[in-house]
Design a protein around this nucleic acid. Structure first.
Length: 373
DNA sequence: TACACGTGGAA
DNA sequence: TTTCCAAGTGT
């Protein structure tokens, strides 16, 4: 502020923000949770509950995947009080398929806290939001800016990409995070931090994309250092990722005469915590573990039903699937028979749905049920 | 700081 | 097919 260079840079940053906001006015995406810039300018504010819900769902998740979940949650639990009054199991069921299931548990815990400790109103400061479960640095800043108009510095993966290209930042992520934050801080317009944050993210999502960025259409192309160098895709610089180890296990899908499938609940912590599954073995790091029919949870007419593959963030799983039909096993406590009409509503992660689908293929019991239906 | 934690779409 | 990775958080 006091030296010539910083005031010059400040003017540049101001011009950049203005160009970005003009672009956002004309080209912003229409999203179910978004209040468009025209309405913001008219004084309208989005419902903090909707902003929070969408931000949590969007963590590491694509916009397309989130849309239908967001709409379903909002229709079923229109306010944070409704969500606080809900059963955690129902929230987990509604979240099934979206991934990163600790988000769902934290979502519910956060709603409980807002209802119990904040009178049903979300805190309107970054610090207040940051203290809630499932709300980290990014989400706290995003809610503060978008829902409450606070001048918070919002840095997500999009912003990291845009800024690291704009300034050709050679430091690999995540070490470059602080430097990126400083640049965003310098650009931040005090009068519309919410639009600015969303504009940066829209730009990163639609123009300054990871591959083949559309620099010709970019409102910030004039001063972009990476474009000047000729290879914007070089940024952001990231450390190479460790390769994904292979794991193998088995899943045992027991089918009752009426087509019901035997399920149980996974442990409360770790992978797919608290979600439903057909009985499975542990997933060993080795590819040749004890995963055959010998590992079945109880005696039945188990038959091999092929195997499925599923990719998790940090390992790749091959699951050998076994099927037993016309099983009349009395479920141990915590296990239950899920009738065909209930199955789609269970808290089944995608990997487990794949395993069950593989078992059903060619299952006579299941075919009979389908024919009746 | 480093790792655990899901899924599906794009190139 | 393979690789990347999307509006990150918790530990």
């Amino acid at each position: 502020m006091t030296t010539d260079t910083s005031s010059i840079r400040s003017e540049n940053q101001e011009a950049r923000a203005a160009a970005l906001l003009a672009w956002y006015d004309a080209h912003h995406r229409e999203l179910p949770w978004r209040t468009p810039p025209r309405e913001i300018a008219a004084g309208r504010r989005p419902d903090p509950y909707g902003v929070w819900l969408s931000e949590v769902m969007l963590q590491q998740t694509t916009v397309e995947a989130v849309k239908s979940y967001y709409l379903r949650f909002l229709a079923r639990w229109p306010t944070v009080a409704d969500l606080a009054a809900a059963e955690t199991d129902d929230v987990m069921k509604a979240w099934a398929g979206l991934g990163y299931y600790s988000r769902a548990r934290n979502l519910k815990a956060c709603a409980d806290r807002v209802a119990a400790d904040h009178g049903g109103l979300f805190p309107d400061t970054e610090d207040g939001l940051r203290a809630l479960p499932g709300i980290g640095a990014y989400t706290a800043a995003a809610i503060a800016a978008i829902a409450f108009g606070r001048p918070a510095v919002v840095v997500d993966g999009n912003v990291e990409r845009v800024v690291s290209r704009l300034f050709a930042i050679a430091t690999p992520l995540p070490a470059a995070k602080e430097e990126i934050r400083r640049h965003v801080q310098a650009m931040l317009p005090a009068d519309c931090p919410g639009d600015f944050a969303q504009a940066m993210m829209d730009l990163g999502a639609t123009i300054c994309s990871p591959r083949r960025p559309k620099c010709m259409l970019c409102p910030l192309n004039e001063g972009c250092a990476a474009l000047g160098e000729g290879d914007p895709e070089r940024y952001p610089v990231k450390l190479p990722k460790p390769e994904r180890p292979q794991r193998r296990g088995a899943a045992f899908v027991a089918i009752r005469s009426d087509g019901a499938v035997l399920l149980r609940k996974r442990p409360g912590s770790g992978l797919l915590a608290g979600m439903a599954e057909p009985p499975t073995t542990g997933w060993t790091a080795r590819a040749d573990g004890e995963t055959g029919v010998g590992a079945a949870p109880f005696a039945a007419g188990w038959r091999a039903a092929g195997s499925i593959r599923h990719v998790f963030t940090h390992f790749e799983l091959t699951l050998d699937v076994f099927r037993a039909e016309r099983v009349e096993h009395v479920p141990p406590s915590g296990w239950w028979w899920s009738p065909p009409q209930d199955l789609s509503g269970e808290a089944l992660p995608t990997v487990m749905k794949k395993a069950i689908a593989a078992a059903m293929e060619g299952a006579a019991t299941y075919r009979e049920q389908q024919d009746k239906a």
